[in-house]
């Protein structure tokens, strides 16, 4: 449900506002998790594990963000997930990783933007 739905009742809007705050609070951990995955990648060279981990994180962000009204964040998370899924279907994991970095950076920018504008 988009938070901005016109038919949202006041108590629903209040509950959703609480969920939005919790989502924003969770973003730092989500960013750190993705950074951990890339650090682990640099250490082990295991592109496949890193890509699946990043894709799963992006998928989770995409599912929640759009529903809570963070459209741009949800869209960038979805684009990253797609870039990884499509990339792995066409290229080797390392090539996929190199190709999806633009989408990863866009997602991290969106995450930071949400954090910066958070109350």
């Amino acid at each position: 449900m988009n938070v901005g739905s016109e038919d949202a009742k006041p108590d629903v809007a209040e509950a959703m506002a609480g969920l939005r705050s919790r989502f924003i609070d969770s973003l730092v951990d989500r960013i750190l998790h993705m950074e951990d995955l890339t650090s682990e990648l640099r250490r082990t060279g295991d592109y496949t594990t890193a890509l699946y981990g990043i894709s799963a994180s992006a998928h989770r962000i995409a599912g929640v963000a759009g529903t809570l009204g963070f459209g741009a964040l949800g869209s960038n998370a979805r684009k990253l997930e797609e870039a990884i899924t499509d990339g792995l279907a066409q290229y080797e994991p390392r090539e996929t990783f190199l190709r999806m970095r633009t989408q990863l950076e866009a997602l991290l920018d969106s995450l930071e933007a949400v954090l910066e504008t958070a109350p």
Partner: peptide, 18 residues
């Protein structure tokens, strides 16, 4: 059923509102 707890919270809230 969803493996993202926050999404489940949102879904539960939505179901309650309906």
């Amino acid at each position: 059923v969803d493996d993202e707890p926050l999404f489940l919270d949102v879904l539960m809230q939505l179901m309650h509102s309906c």
